[in-house]
Simulated assay, not measured.
Amino acid sequence: MAALQFSLRSKDNHTKARAGKITTDHGEILTPIFMPVGTVGSVKAVNQQQLKSIVAAQIILGNTYHLYLRPGTDVLEQAGGLHKFNGWDKPILTDSGGYQVFSLSGTRKIKEEGVIFQSHIDGSRHLFSPEKVMDIERSIGADIIMAFDECPPAGCEYIYAKKSMELTHRWLDRCVARVNETEGKYGYTQNLFPIVQGNTFKDLRTASAEYIASKNAVGNAIGGLSVGEPEDVMYEFTALCCDILPQAKPRYLMGVGTPWNILEGISLGVDMFDCVMPTRNGRNGMLFTSQGVINIKNKKWATDFSPIDDGFVCETSNYYSKAYLRHLFVSQELLGLQLASIHNLAFYLWLVGEARKHILEGDFASWKNEMVVRLKQRL
């Protein structure tokens, strides 16, 4: 058992991009990295063997709110934690449920003590305090556990953003205390990441980043972005946070985003990303490819027998044709959802791997600028 370790191997000379390595008790993670989202312990439409062999995922996510409701901590503890329950033996990160404070605003009430939720499943009411969230995350058993925070909506008033940030900081102190007074349940280290908030106000973001940095955690997250603000604003505040958060610790930009968002985030100094976009958009027929964005449902692909994407090595993307994948969607065959999800995830993991390679080779900036233009094309 050892606390999470982070080592930097290389920094880009023309941007703030860096290549590093995170070491956890469940294995190593080469950064920059994209983390597939497995909200309820499952990455939708993709099984764990596919995540390993085709997608080449190094770490996946679970969500505290959803796993607490189903299957529940009793089941997870009896199984020996989420790793044993879902058969994933590599690192796992759990979101604390803070995003649900934002997304389920119609069925929750925020108090100093915590957040009272109304279950989206059966309407039952539950209190999530910072202490309870840490206990739940202990029971889930992730290698990286996120602090409980509030994520205010984009465009909120300054006074609300300030009060929310201060509440997040007080909750963080309670999270830290709870983690320090409890132990992991499964014989390996669980590492707490605090989260920067402050909405899109420079003084608040600066204050929050400085407060989070002062906690000397093994890693830090940037939250409250990609929630409706323009892309250039997201980049501006990502850069602000990265300039304050410690160089020697991994930085995680939560909930981001498109392939070009990820490349720009890497150039600003971010190491870790997650987003439901590759699987959610894939299930709706949107493919992110090495040449641009495809709506596979369009009739233009009906007789295109070329591979889904031959711009990178992937046994799914190189094997099946665009015409066949379109046929599956038009026919409402479940295999279409699976193939599109696998392709998008494999592409995202390939993309961050290429970014790492170009950082190490010293030509990341020129490669990134060329790729961003290409990836945004609508084919």
Rank of each mutant, 00 (worst) to 15 (best):
I244E: 12
E264L: 14
W260T: 15
G257S: 07
F312H: 05
T258K: 09
G292Q: 01
L287K: 08
D271Q: 07
I294G: 06
G292R: 03
G228W: 15
E264A: 13
L245K: 10
I262C: 01
I308Y: 09
Y319S: 08
K297R: 15
P250G: 12
G255F: 06
M286K: 09
D243W: 04
G265M: 05
T238W: 06
T316I: 14
I266K: 01
D274M: 00
K300S: 09
M234D: 07
R251K: 14
I296Q: 04
G255C: 09
D274R: 01
L263I: 09
V227K: 06
L240G: 07
A239Q: 15
P307A: 06
F305N: 04
L268G: 00
Q291F: 14
I266S: 01
A302M: 10
K300W: 04
C275K: 02
N261F: 12
L245S: 08
T238N: 12
D271F: 02
L245A: 08
A239C: 14
S267F: 03
A248W: 07
I266E: 03
C275M: 06
N298M: 13
W301K: 03
I294S: 05
P278D: 02
R283M: 08
Y319G: 00
M254S: 12
Y320A: 01
I296E: 01
T279D: 05
W260K: 07
P259W: 10
L268T: 00
R280W: 00
P259F: 08
K300P: 09
Y320N: 03
V276Q: 07
Y320I: 05
G255H: 06
P307T: 03
M272E: 12
L268D: 03
E236S: 13
W301I: 05
Y320F: 12
L253R: 03
S306L: 09
A248L: 11
F305K: 01
C275E: 02
G311S: 13
P250F: 11
K299C: 05
P307Q: 02
N281I: 00
V313F: 01
I294M: 13
M272H: 04
L287Q: 07
T316M: 07
D304I: 04
Y252D: 05
N281P: 00
A302T: 09
F237M: 10
K299M: 08
I296M: 04
V276G: 06
V233G: 10
R251D: 10
G257K: 04
E231T: 11
M254D: 10
P250V: 13
T289Y: 00
I296D: 00
L287V: 07
M277F: 11
V313S: 09
G285R: 01
C275R: 02
G257C: 06
D271M: 06
D232I: 15
V233D: 14
R251Y: 07
E264R: 14
E315K: 13
K299T: 06
K297T: 13
L268W: 04
F312R: 02
A302V: 11
G257T: 04
Q247H: 11
A239E: 15
W301G: 04
V227M: 09
P307W: 05
T289Q: 03
K297Y: 10
I296T: 02
N298R: 14
G255A: 11
T303Y: 14
G257W: 04
I308V: 13
D243Y: 09
K299Q: 13
T279Y: 04
W260H: 14
I308P: 09
G311N: 08
L240Y: 11
T303V: 11
G228P: 15
N261M: 15
N318Y: 07
N318V: 00
